[in-house]
Design a protein around this nucleic acid. Structure first.
Lengths: 137, 137
DNA sequence: TGGTTAATTAACCAGGTGGTTATATACACT
DNA sequence: AGTGTATATAACCACCTGGTTAATTAACCA
């Protein structure tokens, strides 16, 4: 398998068990045994799947005594969404109009955010908010 | 590899060569040799990649004399986008607000489309337009 | 008919993937 | 210290993947 980030992410997503695990993690972090419960396969198999997801950066794992709770880590999914945007117009006929609307939204949003940041003096976060929802092409 | 549609699609996308081929096809359909040109690998290798993309339904292939032009087929990418939507809120803080805006847009769009269809008596297409751009959760 | 160009198929190979069972590690409890 | 519970690692296996070179098919051209 190629070692770039997108390839690793897609490869990790190319398995229904792993996608089911991600889906389960939507409702909160859980232990390995609880994640394994719905499946017929052995625990080591699940352990391997979790390692794949972890290496792909799709989940992060904590430590609580002998439990290793997994939680969703959505950054890589955003990368996928960003990549997909290049192709949106091929399946979404109304893309151009939608794009225009979204760009307007984005502009408004930026201004709002800038004002908010000036008021509250927040730190750390940049203003990338809507980037993944609009075209980059 | 699992045989369900999403798994096949993700597996096909988990290779930089294949993604590069898709990117190339954004600018129109092309022959195998032209698709192969940017890469160092042999023609049979590209041929295999194209077969993977074709089986995944990401491209379709025509026949023009001895050429087999490939063209982008974005339906499966839409499926990926739809799947991704379940996770959007995990990377997009402003998801809820965006969702509201998009639903409003969708409503407007539906009305526009209905009027248009009444006027032109178009057939076959339903009004699923913005489904992939908004949350389904 | 024969030659050229485009693409695919066949046969092969190294390395990866997804599963197994058996064993090991880590922590909690008494 | 010893036991139970949660998880990971090791060793193994069948199959898949992504590449190669050589041979084959298919269409055009003269």
């Amino acid at each position: 398998m190629a070692s770039d980030s997108l390839s690793t992410t897609f490869a990790a997503l190319a398995d229904p068990t792993r996608r089911a695990i991600l889906a389960r993690l939507i409702s909160g972090e859980t232990s390995v045994t609880k994640l394994a419960a719905p499946f017929q396969m052995s625990l080591p198999a699940i352990s391997k799947h979790l390692k794949v997801l972890e290496r792909a950066g799709l989940i992060a794992r904590g430590r609580e005594a002998q439990w290793r709770p997994s939680r969703l880590e959505a950054g890589r999914l955003r990368e996928v969404a960003d990549w997909l945007e290049h192709y949106r117009r091929f399946w979404d006929e109304s893309f151009d109009r939608l794009d225009i609307h979204l760009r307007e939204l984005q502009a408004k949003q930026k201004k709002l955010l800038q004002r908010k940041q000036t008021r509250e003096k927040k730190h750390g976060r940049t203003t990338r908010k809507f980037r993944s929802a609009v075209s980059k092409a």
